[in-house]
Write a protein that binds this DNA or RNA. Structure first.
Lengths: 125, 125
DNA sequence: TCCGTGTATGAGCATATGCTCAGATATTAA
DNA sequence: TTAATATCTGAGCATATGCTCATACACGGA
């Protein structure tokens, strides 16, 4: 067992817990992202972490659709769909185009499709 | 505007909302997954949709770490880390190996790293 | 300009989530 | 077996989330 128990002396706000491998903790800290990046990445995955939104995204990966079509497909109110679409739009998961009063939604870019594919691959491993 | 308003006659539990493109709704239904698959996929992305868990996953993408190292890195209690690790383990995002009393955690497979990479790529597009 | 259709938005409620605390379990050494 | 270390687990609390309802906005036709 190659452990080496020691308290963390390298930070002013020494944490309350034990550290076994301080070099690993240091390495993790060096390669860590900025806090806002974790938040933005979390928001992206969180947006994909809901069955309703996944149904929307997978439906849009086939073909662009409008709000009321999605509502019919999902069997929930158009309001609920609209709320979800706003979230997906703000996080750049979907985009839309207007044709008269109708807004057609589509996936924003190829990253989303790839994330969905890899996710499904992982489930079926 | 190529719309064709009609109520959905093809389902017994006719939904309350309008349908503009019934053929798109039908296509979405045909290509839809089973409900449990949406749930499992949602659980996967939901697990990645939290800053704390992302920090854990990105740290583990560098090197395997034990609970107390992760707690020191994250500056939260070992209990909180353990709770999160249990969730990540149950969803096959991480795996562990035991060396005496110490459990070393690592990413379960390459899918997770790919998801993280593509997610970061999307943010920086 | 007024109306109808399609969509967006804010408030509010029921449920889910992430953390901490207290205590239990597992492994090793004496 | 006893003690120490490392980790796990359940309960409970504060906050976040997803939905519905009511209402407002945007566009096109009469």
């Amino acid at each position: 067992m190659d452990r080496e128990v020691m308290m963390d002396k390298n930070r002013e706000d020494a944490c309350l817990c034990r550290i076994i491998h301080s070099e690993r903790v240091e390495k993790a800290r060096r390669t860590a992202l900025q806090a806002p990046e974790y938040d933005r990445l979390a928001n992206l995955f969180k947006a994909m972490g809901d069955p309703t939104r996944l149904q929307i995204l997978l439906a849009l990966s086939q073909e662009e659709m409008c709000v009321c079509d999605l509502a019919a497909f999902l069997n929930i109110t158009e309001s609920a769909v609209s709320h979800q679409l706003r979230m997906l739009r703000q996080l750049y998961l979907v985009a839309n185009r207007r044709d008269g009063p109708v807004l057609y939604y589509r996936l924003d870019d190829g990253h989303i499709t790839r994330l969905l594919d890899i996710g499904l691959e992982h489930l079926r491993e």
